[in-house]
Design a protein around this nucleic acid. Structure first.
Lengths: 147, 147
DNA sequence: CAATATTAGGTGTATATACACTCATATTGT
DNA sequence: ACAATATGAGTGTATATACACCTAATATTG
């Protein structure tokens, strides 16, 4: 029975999950490359941007915005803390730690923003406006697969 | 100048890279959940599948198939080795280590295959055949962004 | 108001990923 | 034939990610 596997698909690119993971790695590398003059990666810039938008989010609140685990956000924040891009302040609720941008974090975000805009534009030029919109719609549906 | 950031986009879901990363996490969780009765994750099943297809690939060859770094594949293989799903054999070229499925690895792959088929079908039902094909096309283009 | 449940956060451990560097073994050019 | 270069693999370090388990503070409720 060991070699009775002839019904497995022959091509390697059939798994939708493998494909999106591969594309995700590629796009991450593309964006990181575009942002590299700022010293930020796309995950770090994304975190800084969310912190700015949400004003003084708690760690869990910030994690929810990215749909990542709370403990992942906790650890990702440590690098931003170490680099002086954010600070943590105790909220009125003594359990909560509010995340805030420092001046340096704000400056870095601003610096990265222009590069990010170009990356977004480059991607739109590459895929075409139509196809990019379609892709974004499909990605949103995939996100909804998890509660 | 510190607060001169009013031109930043207000919504959080504008970054295409953040979006694909989020979707990739979600789909990975979906597939892993589907495959969980087999004890394999989608990355592990993917590796086993590729090892089967490529016959006796070297580590770098296997990594190239996933477009991941060679050293990443090296480390991911260690878990499969530890679980007895694969073995490494020296090739004729003494530098090369050929990866082979064990009987246990083959059996696990076979067990996971049915669950994976169902996941693929569920996703197609969820997105629709048309949209899934479009998505796969776009993902392939994104992969091509890196050399 | 005391007991309990919920919420916010932190740590240990594990997987997935990449880069810089190293080592050993081919292959090749002169 | 031998030096220079290619190639295949391994390690150290770092980021990104999640789950199980823990602590502390607040909220709820009998």
């Amino acid at each position: 029975m060991k070699q009775n596997l002839g019904h497995f698909p022959k091509e390697s690119n059939v798994c939708n999950c493998t494909n999106i993971r591969r594309a995700s790695r590629a796009l991450t590398q593309f964006y990181d490359e575009c942002l590299s003059p700022s010293g930020l990666t796309v995950t770090r810039m994304g975190m800084l941007h969310q912190i700015m938008e949400l004003k003084h989010p708690g760690i869990s609140e910030l994690a929810a915005a990215f749909r990542i685990d709370r403990t992942t956000m906790n650890r990702n924040l440590k690098a931003l803390l170490a680099d002086g891009l954010v600070i943590l302040r105790a909220g009125q609720d003594a359990r909560k730690k509010e995340v805030q941008l420092t001046e340096l974090g704000t400056a870095k975000l601003q610096q990265a923003y222009g590069l990010w805009c170009q990356a977004q534009q480059d991607l739109e030029d590459y895929l075409g406006r139509e196809e990019l919109q379609q892709l974004r719609g499909s990605l949103a549906k995939l996100e909804a697969l998890v509660p």
